[in-house]
Design a protein around this nucleic acid. Structure first.
Length: 428
RNA sequence: GGUUGGGUGGCCGAGUGGUUUAAGGCACCGGUCUUGAAAACCGGCGUGCGGGAAACCGCACCGGGGGUUCGAAUCCCUCCCCAACCGCCA
């Protein structure tokens, strides 16, 4: 959510920003409604002031006649106030709907355009391997080694659910350990987060908890929803709080299960583990001072690169174009890992995403900071980034590390947790 | 799931219809004292919105919403949340 005063004073900038991001918003209409609303608010406040004066005078009235006259006057003033308040509330509702639809401002360096305009910034250390044998995709590999049971998942919970088995289960734990271990050494506070959250928290982060378009599973008869990412719970952790400035930046990392309905995603490339209703993710989150958020964003991106370089997986880094940014993001970097079994001869597939949401989420969640000795408070900046989304990382590992003999080499950094160097093949 | 008690400023906490302009304390800021610090003392100090160059002024805010009243932190209704205990349970 943008600062209303900023919108009023910079309506052309805001309109231009919405256009670039492909969001249809009538900023001029908002300015008109909001200006009118402010006028009415001033009137309401003036009537309140008069009514307060009258009420106070009643306590000191000399006799009943005067008291009754004053009461009547107070009643009249408040009636008029009610009428104007009703008008004001109509304007507030309409202006609020427009305000709510406005996306965040955009980083000046973010490439302008649609999805195709996203710009490749760099590639990882590992080169794409030449395979001298027919490449299998992760579904085939998993079947060969009894690693994933999609049929069992479907029987229990329907399409999009699965059981990880054997080394795949160990790999999930290993990836969690690997990512958490790395982040803790960077000074992140490790957390295990709730997998459900209240509707207000979801909305504050920028998700829509209910309704036909929702990506979120919600629990019947409760204001609770299965989280789509630990970004929701980590961001919500400080909702309504005022943080002392010297405690910033706060860096958290959290493990959660992530649940997504994937409504409307039917037909898109989604074989196997790529697009599922549940997966596990290690997430980074930070609360920062405004001047720290750009640096923190680059830091998140670099950590994601380090993590995938450590796994030895080829990837590219994208600076996401304006038209493809979600509402809260000011700028977003994605890592796309090379998935040799994807598409026809391999494709890059998104494995992580790091967003700087500036004060867009903190305004909705009411997360502020206070500088010692200064008056007033300011909104913090929030950032989130994927350390490891297990399901997609598994795809990349299985497909990139497959060998001519059908075995899969376990990435070196994960061996201490998986307990072996190779899945299948000679090592069976 | 049951019972009881709660929700008041950054924190603790008083406050049963108008002397509350939300007491008091902690923390914080400034000052006096001191070689320095601590202590003590004096003063300041909530958030948001609007107006103003500023000093400052106005309005709103005591979990959310609604109601009674000239006037509500206070009374009524309703919802939410938190805690403790009991039951069940990994």
């Amino acid at each position: 959510m943008l600062d209303k005063r900023f919108i009023l004073e910079n309506s052309e900038v805001v309109q231009e920003n919405c256009n670039r991001r492909g969001v249809k918003v009538d900023v001029a209409r908002f300015v008109e409604l909001e200006s009118q609303r402010r006028k009415l608010q001033a009137e309401v406040e003036e009537l309140s002031r008069q009514a307060n004066v009258v009420s106070k005078s009643i306590g000191q009235a000399k006799d009943d006649a005067e008291r009754d006259a004053r009461k009547e006057e107070g009643r009249r003033i408040r009636e008029r106030k009610e009428e104007i308040t009703a008008d004001m509330e109509r304007l507030t509702a309409e202006a609020g709907a427009i305000h709510n639809a406005m996306p965040n401002l955009t980083h000046p360096e973010a490439p302008v355009g649609g999805e195709d305009a996203s710009k490749e910034l760099c590639r990882g250390n590992a080169a794409v391997r030449p395979f001298g044998f027919p490449v299998l995709d992760h579904v085939q590999i998993a079947e060969q080694h009894d690693l994933i049971d999609f049929e069992g998942g479907a029987r229990v919970a329907g399409h999009g659910f699965y059981f990880l088995k054997n080394e795949a289960a160990l790999l999930e734990l290993a990836l969690q350990q690997y990512a958490m271990d790395r982040l803790v050494r960077e000074g992140f506070s490790p957390t295990i987060t709730p997998d459900l959250a209240r509707g207000d928290v979801l909305k504050g982060i920028g998700f829509i908890p209910r309704g036909p378009e929702t990506q979120i599973y919600s629990v019947e008869n409760h204001d609770l929803n299965l989280v789509a990412t630990a970004e929701i719970t980590l961001g919500g952790l400080y909702a309504g709080q005022v943080i002392e400035a010297e405690k910033l930046p706060i860096k958290l990392c959290g493990i959660s299960h992530c649940f997504r309905t994937e409504a409307g995603a039917a037909g898109r490339a989604s074989r196997g583990l790529y697009r599922v209703h549940q997966f596990t993710k290690v997430e980074m989150f930070a609360f920062t001072l405004p001047e720290q958020s750009d640096g923190m964003h680059n830091y998140f991106r670099d950590l994601e690169c380090e993590i995938f370089d450590g796994l030895g997986i080829p990837y590219r880094v994208l600076d996401i174009a304006t038209g493809d940014l979600g509402g809260p993001a000011y700028r977003k970097f994605d890592l796309e890992a090379w998935m040799p079994g994807r598409g026809n001869g391999g494709e890059y597939g998104e494995v992580t995403s790091a967003s700087n949401c500036t004060d867009y989420q903190s305004r909705r969640l009411d997360i502020r900071y206070k500088v010692k000795g200064e008056k007033g408070t300011h909104y913090v900046h929030t950032l989130n980034g994927t350390a490891v989304a297990i399901s997609r990382a598994l795809i990349a590992i299985l497909e990139n590390y497959q060998q001519a003999d059908g075995s899969i080499v376990v990435p070196e950094v994960l061996r201490r947790w998986v307990g072996k160097e190779r899945i299948g093949g000679n090592g069976i």
